[in-house]
Design a protein around this nucleic acid. Structure first.
Length: 480
DNA sequence: ATGTCC
């Protein structure tokens, strides 16, 4: 066992192409971060992904890489649109899991005395937990089919947010080409009561303070000022997206035999992008992605209602502005330069965020001069980061960045380490008001269960793949 | 991540 890892520089490592690999592997990491994954199979997974038909560039991994289903979490793989494959394992079970950040006119001193009330109000406003049901209302299948077609536009049309929000969401909050018929009745059944619900695990609502600004000019453009309060949501497509993934893994398993594709791991199940099966998955994936954007948009409306009630002021007085919303579990057709030639590729980002540079046509107009914003949640006790995309990231990793801290302890190990501890009180002593629906969640998600996110983003910055703009410190947190 | 085992 073991993977042949060759050091290129302090933060770049190569898995040389050998045997049936179509490209080499490339891992952006530090020696210390690599040491934390020595007991999992994520590097083997990077090597396995290099066998995908049509893969170009390298099988890539970000510094927060850890083992996932087939593909590593923190992995990026681009396949040729004309003759490459698409794989549900390269997107993940939580299709369009992502993060959005809302800035406000409030400063820390305006909210510090009311945090207990605020976290309570947020907890009451947004349903959380595994089986959590809708913060909106139960939807009929015909309504749900509109949601998966329209994405974030749907809640905006139904009282949650305004049209300006859509300009500050990746893809405008809606991937074109979603096909409601490609989503199973079972997926709709699971989703009909889940619009506007947080979910569980690492998903959260968080009130944070801008703790440190590293690039003031960029922070100004993004509307971030030291001491300012921001609100973050990390969530995805809930049971609907999970069911889409499950449904199409089965479809892909059959397609592998049909198209004569053999791969080192069955969990990499895939089909040619241009096949019937590949297109069906892609269209269903887009539908689930749109549901996730509608979900985060709905939750934003619900959560801002809580802010309004606690502080007795409206959205205007609160100075609410959606900074941006990014996804980190998705596959998209994009134009990239590969070996000197421009080509259309299907970029799988699993636990990796798009990070387009300044002046890229898909970088939102408001941020065209500074680059696309990226949000990197750390853990609930330490900090999170705001980054922006850089040209080097386009050249090295298809305009992508890391997505988080990455787990250090398994859920089970974290549960054991948290046994007998009063984590809620410990976090309060660190200045974080936490409310969790499940007692187990708090232990599984405790700060010690995660790598140091500062180390992760410093690798990205050192390589100029993305730049660090600001560090955020949590002051209130709602978990599922 | 997830109606955490159809």
């Amino acid at each position: 066992m073991g993977v042949n890892l060759r050091k290129i520089n302090d933060w770049t490592w190569e898995i040389p192409r050998e045997a049936d690999m179509l490209v080499s592997g490339r891992v952006f990491s530090s020696a210390a971060l690599l040491a934390s994954i020595r007991d999992d199979l994520s590097l083997e997974q990077v090597r396995n992904v290099a066998h995908l038909p049509g893969i170009v560039g390298h099988s890539l991994a970000m510094p927060d890489i850890h083992q996932g289903y087939g593909f590593p979490i923190g992995g990026v793989a681009a396949t040729r649109e004309v003759d490459g494959v698409i794989s549900p394992g390269g997107v993940g079970y939580d299709i369009n899991c992502g993060v959005r950040l809302v800035t406000m006119a409030l400063d820390e001193r305006d909210v510090s005395a009311r945090l207990d009330a605020l976290v309570g109000a947020l907890y009451a406003a947004v349903p959380a937990g595994v089986g959590a049901s809708s913060g909106f209302r139960k939807l009929g299948e015909s309504e749900l089919r509109k949601v998966v077609t329209e994405g974030a536009r749907w809640p905006v049309a139904h009282g949650h947010g305004d049209a300006d929000d859509l300009l500050h969401i990746e893809e405008g909050g809606c991937l074109e080409g979603a096909e409601p018929d490609a989503v199973s009745a079972q997926a709709y059944a699971r989703g009909r009561e889940q619009l506007g619900s947080l979910g569980s695990g690492n998903h959260f609502l968080e009130v944070e303070v801008v703790d440190e600004v590293f690039r003031p000019d960029v922070a100004d453009v993004l509307g971030l000022r030291k001491g300012g309060v921001v609100f973050a949501i990390h969530s995805g497509s809930r049971g609907l997206g999970h069911q889409v993934c499950t449904d199409y893994l089965r479809v892909m398993d059959r397609a592998m035999a049909k198209y004569g594709i053999t791969l080192p791991d069955r969990q990499l199940a895939c089909a040619p992008l241009r096949s019937e099966e590949g297109q069906a998955y892609f269209r269903a994936m887009k539908a689930a992605a749109n549901f996730a954007w509608a979900n985060r948009q709905t939750m934003t409306g619900l959560a801002l209602g809580a802010f309004e009630r606690v502080f007795g002021m409206g959205r205007g007085a609160l100075g609410v502005r959606l900074l941006y919303d990014v996804c980190h579990n998705i596959a998209k057709i994009e134009e990239h330069v590969v070996e000197g030639a421009s080509m259309r590729v299907c970029v799988h980002r699993k636990g990796a965020t798009r990070a387009f540079p300044p002046h890229h046509p898909l970088t939102p107009v408001a941020y065209r001069e500074v680059g696309q914003p990226v949000f990197i949640p750390g853990d609930m006790g330490r900090c999170s980061y705001v980054l922006v995309g850089q040209p080097r990231g386009m050249e090295e990793c298809f305009g992508s960045s890391c997505h988080g801290a990455g787990r250090l302890l398994s859920r089970q190990a974290a549960l054991k380490a948290g046994a007998g501890r009063r984590l809620q009180e410990e976090l309060l002593e660190r200045g974080v008001h936490v409310r969790a629906r499940g007692v187990k969640t708090l232990a599984e998600e405790m700060p010690e269960a995660y790598k140091d996110v500062s180390e992760v983003v410093s690798v990205m910055d050192a390589l100029n793949l993305t730049h660090i703009v600001a560090r955020l410190r949590p002051i209130a947190c709602v978990k599922g």
